[in-house]
Amino acid sequence: NQASVVANQLIPINTALTLVMMRSEVVTPVGIPAKDIPRLVSMQVNRAVPLGTTLMPDMVKGYA
C-alpha cells in the first residue's frame, strides 16, 4: 500500500508547510503520495488541517 501525507500537528489555514508538519502513513482513503513531501514544503494549505488528517490535493494551494 502506498503511504500518504498526514498532518503531524494542527496546520492553520494559509500556513506554509514544513517537514515537521507532515508524516507519511498508509491510510484510507489515499491522499497526496508521501513521495511528494519535498514538493509540498513551502506550499500553503487553504483550510485548517487537524492533527492526523490526510492531506488531499485540494487542500494545498498550487498542488493539484
Rank of each mutant, 00 (worst) to 15 (best):
N1R: 07
N1A: 11
N1Y: 14
N1I: 13
N1H: 12
N1F: 11
N1T: 12
Q2G: 12
Q2C: 04
Q2R: 08
Q2K: 11
Q2H: 10
Q2T: 13
Q2P: 10
Q2I: 15
A3D: 08
A3P: 14
A3I: 08
A3Y: 12
A3R: 06
S4K: 01
S4W: 02
S4T: 04
S4P: 01
S4L: 02
S4R: 01
S4Q: 02
S4G: 05
S4H: 00
V5H: 00
V5Y: 01
V5L: 03
V5E: 00
V5T: 13
V6G: 00
V6E: 02
V6H: 02
V6Y: 02
V6K: 04
V6D: 00
V6P: 01
A7F: 02
A7D: 00
A7T: 14
A7M: 06
A7K: 01
N8H: 10
N8C: 04
N8K: 15
Q9E: 15
Q9V: 14
Q9D: 09
Q9H: 09
Q9R: 06
Q9L: 11
L10Q: 11
L10C: 04
L10V: 13
L10Y: 14
L10E: 13
L10A: 15
L10H: 07
I11L: 11
I11N: 00
I11D: 00
I11T: 02
I11Y: 02
I11S: 01
I11K: 01
P12I: 07
P12A: 14
P12K: 07
P12H: 12
P12E: 12
P12V: 07
P12C: 05
P12R: 11
P12T: 07
P12G: 07
I13F: 14
I13A: 10
I13S: 14
I13K: 08
I13L: 12
I13N: 12
I13Y: 07
N14S: 07
N14Y: 08
N14L: 11
N14G: 15
N14R: 07
N14P: 01
N14I: 03
N14E: 08
T15E: 05
T15R: 06
T15A: 09
T15N: 05
T15V: 06
T15W: 05
T15C: 04
T15S: 10
A16Y: 11
A16E: 08
A16C: 05
A16V: 06
A16F: 15
L17G: 00
L17M: 10
L17Y: 00
L17D: 00
L17A: 00
T18N: 06
T18E: 09
T18Y: 03
T18D: 07
T18V: 05
T18L: 08
T18I: 07
L19P: 14
L19A: 12
L19S: 10
L19K: 12
L19E: 09
L19F: 07
L19C: 04
L19Q: 09
L19M: 08
V20S: 14
V20R: 09
V20P: 14
V20D: 15
V20L: 15
V20H: 07
M21L: 08
M21D: 04
M21R: 03
M21G: 03
M22P: 00
M22W: 02
M22Q: 00
M22R: 00
M22Y: 02
M22E: 02
R23S: 06
R23I: 06
R23F: 04
S24Y: 08
S24M: 13
S24K: 10
S24T: 12
S24H: 09
S24L: 10
E25V: 06
E25C: 04
E25P: 00
E25G: 09
E25S: 07
E25M: 06
V26F: 08
V26T: 09
V26E: 08
V26N: 14
V26I: 14
V26M: 15
V27R: 10
V27Q: 06
V27L: 09
V27I: 10
T28R: 08
T28C: 04
T28Y: 14
T28G: 08
T28E: 15
T28L: 13
T28F: 15
T28H: 15
T28W: 15
P29N: 05
P29H: 07
P29G: 04
P29K: 05
P29S: 05
P29Y: 04
P29D: 08
V30I: 13
V30F: 10
V30C: 04
V30Y: 14
V30R: 10
V30D: 09
G31W: 02
G31P: 01
G31L: 02
G31T: 01
G31E: 00
G31Q: 02
G31Y: 02
G31A: 03
G31H: 01
G31K: 00
G31M: 02
I32Q: 00
I32G: 00
I32W: 02
I32H: 01
I32F: 03
I32A: 02
P33Q: 05
P33V: 14
P33W: 06
P33C: 04
P33K: 04
P33N: 11
P33S: 10
A34W: 12
A34M: 09
A34R: 05
A34G: 13
A34I: 06
A34Y: 06
A34E: 12
K35N: 14
K35C: 04
K35I: 08
K35D: 08
K35A: 15
K35V: 14
K35E: 09
D36L: 07
D36K: 05
D36V: 08
D36W: 05
I37S: 05
I37Y: 03
I37R: 08
I37C: 03
P38D: 10
P38N: 15
P38F: 10
P38E: 14
P38Q: 10
P38H: 13
R39S: 14
R39P: 03
R39D: 07
R39Q: 09
R39T: 15
R39I: 10
R39L: 11
R39Y: 10
R39H: 09
R39M: 13
R39N: 09
L40V: 07
L40S: 00
L40G: 01
L40R: 00
L40W: 02
L40C: 03
V41P: 03
V41F: 06
V41E: 08
V41M: 13
V41D: 03
V41C: 03
V41L: 13
S42H: 10
S42N: 13
S42M: 10
M43S: 07
M43Q: 07
M43F: 09
M43W: 06
M43L: 15
Q44E: 12
Q44Y: 11
Q44P: 09
Q44S: 13
V45M: 06
V45I: 08
V45Q: 00
N46V: 13
N46D: 11
N46K: 08
N46S: 14
R47I: 14
R47E: 10
R47N: 10
R47L: 13
R47S: 11
R47W: 15
R47C: 04
R47P: 02
A48D: 12
A48S: 10
A48Y: 11
A48E: 14
A48I: 15
A48W: 10
A48Q: 14
V49E: 01
V49D: 02
V49N: 02
V49S: 02
V49M: 06
V49L: 09
P50A: 10
P50L: 13
P50S: 12
P50Y: 10
P50M: 07
P50C: 04
P50H: 12
L51F: 11
L51P: 10
L51S: 10
L51H: 12
L51R: 06
L51G: 13
L51A: 15
G52I: 02
G52D: 12
G52A: 08
G52C: 03
G52R: 05
G52T: 03
G52H: 15
T53S: 15
T53G: 15
T53F: 12
T53R: 10
T53K: 05
T53W: 09
T53V: 14
T53A: 10
T54C: 03
T54V: 09
T54E: 01
T54L: 05
T54W: 02
L55N: 00
L55W: 00
L55G: 01
L55Q: 01
L55R: 00
L55I: 10
M56F: 11
M56E: 14
M56G: 05
M56D: 06
M56L: 13
P57Y: 12
P57W: 08
P57A: 14
P57L: 05
P57D: 06
P57S: 14
P57T: 13
D58C: 05
D58A: 14
D58M: 14
D58G: 11
M59L: 05
M59H: 07
M59D: 15
M59E: 03
M59S: 08
M59A: 10
M59F: 13
V60Q: 00
V60W: 02
V60Y: 01
V60H: 01
V60N: 02
V60K: 01
V60G: 01
K61W: 15
K61M: 09
K61V: 15
K61E: 13
K61F: 13
K61C: 04
G62W: 05
G62P: 05
G62Y: 07
G62M: 11
G62E: 15
G62V: 05
G62T: 06
Y63L: 07
Y63H: 05
Y63W: 13
Y63P: 04
Y63A: 04
Y63K: 03
Y63I: 04
A64Q: 15
A64S: 11
A64Y: 08
A64P: 13
A64T: 15
